[in-house]
Design a protein around this nucleic acid. Structure first.
Lengths: 188, 188
DNA sequence: AGGTTATGAATGAAAG
DNA sequence: CTTTCATTCATAACCT
């Protein structure tokens, strides 16, 4: 890792602001190209979509259909979901690792599932429950605070809490070049 | 997609397998280019920073799917991750306080980072490693060589054999093109 | 078709 | 060190 030569303190700049601006645009352009190629490739690969695949048994494909399957993530069957919900209801706490395994075993009777799936499911279930009901044991409706409004108490800022710095120092390639090109994606 | 008219032959197919293979490679190449440009820009930005440099943009740019995201929690840059991984590999024990500081200092060359970040990273790395390998009996030495290589493929380990994740659709890791260019890390 | 929502998964940070 | 929380990302399902 040879470094130092590129991170030294320069007397003068290697690039003007304008040049840097150009670079920034180029980055954005290549990003878009990347994205487009990926999308293209993706659609080509999955060219023939076997079937819509409902909740029922997407992976087993016992009907001898093609198993090209572009299904990526696990989706609980209705039966599984039912069981999961009931378990969640009875003890809204955290299922132990042991418990997770039990649940996974049981649910595997009704479809493909892994312990990780179960684990994630409970994590997400709990998380979204919290978010939906921000006020459960709340003190008062007026003093609602922190959790929702400001979350930047991050210690990662080494020099103090100025998370807004990033915006200022680096407006980032999100300068609207995307819009110039196609205006497709945009987040944040 | 202009084609067909130049060859005169048209069998109803838009692309041959070979062509698709080429496309796939091109995607990977552009991904890397993207990443490199982003890194370059990053270093240039910090280099010309009048405030002392060292600030980094929160742009992740690890995969083409990632977009520029402003202000998030700390995310290691590809370079940082690379280094972290290699360090993790060599000594699977707990880095001393002293060591943590060293690492943090080194990594700060490649982007903003704190000692806490490093500490947390190692903690998490180890924890999730362990999770994948139920065996906790070894520990006699650095016997977790395998643990690092096939790390974290726990997701969706169903019997369907549909590991055809986007990794395959978007095969930057397997083509080795990244290594040709710089040998950057590959997530997963 | 495309944009939006719901939700599975990934991961940094913190609690215990 | 282990477990849990919080936030984010990707994508299936849904909606206009």
């Amino acid at each position: 890792m040879e470094r130092g030569s590129q991170h030294g303190e320069y007397d003068g700049r290697v690039m003007t602001e304008e040049q840097m601006e150009i670079l920034r645009k180029q980055i954005a352009v290549y990003t878009v190209i990347c994205d487009q190629l990926a999308l293209l490739h993706n659609s080509l690969s999955s060219g023939t979509n076997p079937f819509g695949g409902g909740y029922f048994d997407p992976m087993v494909a016992s009907t001898s259909a093609q198993r090209i399957s572009t299904r990526h993530r696990w989706t609980p069957t209705s039966t599984q979901l039912q069981i999961l919900e009931s378990i969640y209801e009875e003890r809204s706490g955290t299922p132990n690792r042991r418990r997770i395994r039990e649940i996974a075993t049981e649910l595997s009777e009704h479809g493909q599932i892994t312990e990780t799936n179960v684990y994630n499911w409970f994590q997400n279930r709990r998380a979204r429950s919290k978010r939906k009901h921000p006020q459960t044991t709340t003190t008062t409706g007026l003093a609602e605070h922190a959790a929702v409004t400001t979350e930047e108490r991050r210690t990662c800022g080494d020099s103090g809490g100025f998370e807004s710095y990033e915006h200022i120092l680096f407006p980032s390639p999100d300068l609207g070049i995307e819009h110039l090109l196609e205006g497709k994606f945009l987040e944040s």
